[in-house]
């Protein structure tokens, strides 16, 4: 079973703070991490390999610092990693990103299963996975929370939907996107960490791919961000003082006065 897992390096958004004076993100000191959903995708890839044999290759598109995240994947035990990095890829929206990743997957060749995280926590679009599947002309299933069965010909998964789940079978090759419930992510192993420190991460540029240059990067992106703003905040807060009882009383009074209901 040849498995490709697509990951994204993201800022740990739980750490992101806004500078209220300049209305910008304070990024200094914010760690870069593997998108949490993608770590579950890696774990699932490793589990399938442990069961059926084969290879797990992790790919990512982004600037050179993404090498750190790919090394982290190596420390978890994946076989190979590839970074797609090129100025020509910059500015890609989900369409151009999924096209580029799909072309890389074609270049790897003979891939049976592609696994992505449900969505990235910085963009939250959830669009790249299905987009890759479309460009690869393979079936896909999103929001997978359980792998029921997999063999050389097909895969059966549970997909979370509103108010329950669907059980879906697909012919391979196929693509799935996974939610956190699908598994518990392993820790890296010491041998994996040692290997990750030695490995040279191969970098593929646009020239290494059989790619249509009008479909990548900013030029290949139909959508464009035209403005960015910071959500407004309510600055009129009434903070009550006193001990617990006094505060509770003041709250009830205030609500009463306002005739809230």
């Amino acid at each position: 079973m040849n498995i490709v897992v697509c990951i994204k390096q993201v800022p740990d958004t739980t750490d992101v703070k806004i500078d209220r004076n300049t209305n910008t993100l304070i990024r200094s000191g914010v760690k870069s991490i593997i998108n949490p959903y993608d770590t579950h995708a890696i774990e699932l890839g490793l589990q399938i390999r442990e069961k059926l044999g084969g290879k797990v290759v992790v790919i990512s598109m982004g600037p050179p610092q993404v090498i750190d995240s790919l090394k982290e994947a190596v420390s978890m035990g994946v076989d190979d990693v590839i970074l797609l990095s090129d100025r020509a890829f910059a500015g890609a929206d989900t369409l151009a990103t999924s096209y580029t990743l799909a072309e890389a997957i074609k270049s790897i060749g003979n891939v049976d299963l592609v696994i992505c995280g449900k969505q990235a926590i910085d963009g939250d679009t959830a669009q790249v996975g299905p987009g890759i599947a479309e460009h690869l002309n393979t079936p896909h299933t999103t929001y997978v929370n359980e792998l029921c069965n997999i063999n050389s010909a097909n895969i059966t998964v549970k997909r979370m939907i509103e108010g329950g789940y669907e059980k879906v079978e697909m012919d391979l090759p196929a693509l799935i996107t996974v939610v956190k419930e699908v598994n518990e992510v392993r820790f890296p192993s010491i041998r994996g960490i040692l290997r990750s420190r030695e490995i040279d991460v191969p970098i593929w540029t646009s020239k290494d791919l059989n790619i249509d240059f009008t479909k990548i990067g900013l030029d290949g992106s139909p959508t464009q961000v035209v403005s960015v703003s910071t959500p407004q905040i309510n600055t009129q807060t009434e903070i009550f003082t006193g001990n617990a009882k006094e505060q509770v009383h003041k709250l009830l009074e205030a609500l009463n006065e306002q005739k809230i209901f």
């Binding site: 669009q127 299905p130 479309e134 509103e162």
Partner: peptide, 23 residues
């Protein structure tokens, strides 16, 4: 932006090669 919409949307937009804005 439901389970269905977020699966169908990206697939359709990729096929007709247009933009899709999520959520």
């Amino acid at each position: 932006a439901t389970a269905m919409g977020r699966s169908l949307g990206p697939r359709v937009s990729a096929r007709v090669e247009t933009g899709l804005t999520a959520d």
